[in-house]
């Protein structure tokens, strides 16, 4: 195996490996919701009328709006990934901020939707809901559990986006650090900076035994490695965001459309 490949292994920089890991994680999310979908299917089978009635009480317009919002946010997310693949950092940031905004819009809609229901006294354990038929109690139980868990995932996705924005906006001070044991054989020598023509620009003082370390600092740059590692992070966060979208793709017809 070549030395480069071994270095790669040491750094664990393996985009395919990291994507396999991410997909495996997404499978766990998929099955987490899978358990809820199973419960939904069983209770729909058990209480068809109540589910149809419960569904008719939800606001289809808001549901459809939120579907469009999430689908569009998926588009902007994938555009952010595409932009970074083409090394267009600023465009990528723009799309990421857009995606974040769509996420927020989704949550605001959700807030008003839930708020309205809670105002009517329809929430798990409420006095009002216990008066309703059992099937409806279960319908709303599932409604709050599933959309709530989904909302939690939207929030997690948005937090991840904040981290990504930080990675994309942070200029790194690329530093090369040399420690004392490597510097000892430089005793009595000087450091010299020169330009292409060989003209001396700057000369350091003589290195004595008191010198224990040496640092080269480049201020405020976006390094290649940083962009590459951000790309992997962004891709994986994108995968997560699309999964959240896919789950909503199923939640939308199950809760908002079974009534008609």
């Amino acid at each position: 195996m070549s030395q480069a490949a071994e270095l790669t292994m040491e750094k664990h920089y393996d985009p395919i490996g990291s994507r396999i890991g991410m997909w495996l994680f997404l499978f766990t999310e998929f099955l987490l919701f899978g358990g809820l979908f199973l419960l939904y299917a069983i209770y729909l089978n058990k209480y068809p009328e109540e589910f149809h009635y419960g569904s008719s009480q939800l606001d289809q317009f808001v549901g459809a709006m939120n579907t469009i919002i999430l689908l569009t946010s998926s588009l902007t997310m994938v555009l952010a990934v595409g932009a970074l693949q083409r090394d267009r950092r600023k465009l990528s940031i723009f799309f990421l901020v857009t995606t974040f905004t769509f996420g927020a819009a989704f949550l605001i809609n959700k807030y008003f939707e839930w708020g309205h229901k809670i105002e009517l006294g329809i929430y798990p354990g409420s006095q009002e809901l216990t008066q309703h038929p059992q099937g409806e109690i279960v319908f709303y139980g599932l409604y709050y559990a599933m959309t709530g868990l989904h909302g939690l995932h939207v929030i997690i996705g948005m937090v991840i986006m904040l981290f990504l924005l930080y990675f994309l906006l942070k200029k790194s001070h690329r530093a090369l650090s040399i420690k004392s044991n490597q510097i000892q054989n430089l005793n009595g020598k000087r450091l010299l900076l020169s330009d292409e023509t060989g003209k001396k620009l700057w000369k350091s003082q003589e290195i004595t035994s008191e010198v224990t370390g040496m640092d080269v600092v480049v201020k405020g740059v976006f390094t290649e490695e940083q962009l590459k590692s951000s790309e992997v992070k962004l891709e994986n966060s994108g995968l997560y965001w699309h999964l959240v979208d896919i789950i909503w793709i199923f939640l939308f017809p199950l809760f908002y459309l079974v009534s008609m």
């Binding site: 419960l39 209770y43 798990p124 354990g125 059992q134 109690i137 279960v138 709303y140 139980g141 599932l142 709050y144 559990a145």
Partner: peptide, 8 residues
């Protein structure tokens, strides 16, 4: 169930 009583 324990905290909110969703009923499933």
């Amino acid at each position: 169930e324990r905290w909110l009583g969703i009923g499933v």
